[in-house]
Amino acid sequence: MKNVIVLVTALLASQGLQAADIARDIRNDEPGNESFLELGFGFFAGQLPLVGFNDQEAEDSGDLQLSIHIGLQARLEYRGFFAEIIEDSFSDITLGYNAYATDEMGIDIVATTMFDDIERDEYIGFESVTDREGDISLGVRSNHYFGDNQVQLELLRDVGGEHEGVVAAAQFGRKFQYRNWNLHGLAGVRYFSKRVIQHYFNVSDEESSATLTAYKADDGFLPTLQIGATLPINEKWIFRTGAEYSLLPKSVSDSPLAQGDDMYTVQAGFYRVFQSG
């Protein structure tokens, strides 16, 4: 199923893409509904203290990671159907249908992937931990626009059969323009039901070892703050930078599979913009 979504998205992307995740709308001073592709390069610095999520051994997990990255974000819309990949979004790939739209609000039915497959058994001390399959969630997303402010609400449930958990999110964003800089701030909280966190962060009795205690997670909230800026360089290139900080749910940070209680990213890059029409 996931492969099918990736294939469909790739096909859509090849025709020229579009966006409506709040992370895109608030940064770009416009509610969704356009096709675009942004392709670029830049640097990334971040810390994510979760073995299996960060390509680091447990003893290094939580250390600052620096990298040069190739960035891509895009969206394609056709007769209300859309596919989007937004770098600053929590979701990886989102397919959806825009069922309602006015100047004040929009309602989308969405299918999205939030977590990839997590494999921990290749890391020292985690050999006994079984792989966790990534999820595919189906749900509703609404966007509400109030001048320079935007609120996005999401309600998603796993339909891939991996954990059948529920994720709900509320985010508030505000945008500013200072000369040709487009600045934004975003604050939000994401709720993960017990099933979601248990799927990724439980340690069963069979998986437990002398260094890894058994653990059963509860539900939890992930509060997040994000700031960002976009500057046009010319008609085809933009400079984009941003930083994000999140406090991990206590039920995640208490897991023996976690090595810290917060995460952050800082990134900046230059992007070539392609837009249809």
């Binding site: 825009n98 008609e235 913009v273």
Partner: peptide, 14 residues
């Protein structure tokens, strides 16, 4: 402008 299209939003269910 970099983004030259302004989106046209509808006013109904679809």
């Amino acid at each position: 402008w970099v983004y030259k299209n302004r989106s046209s939003r509808r006013t109904s269910w679809r």
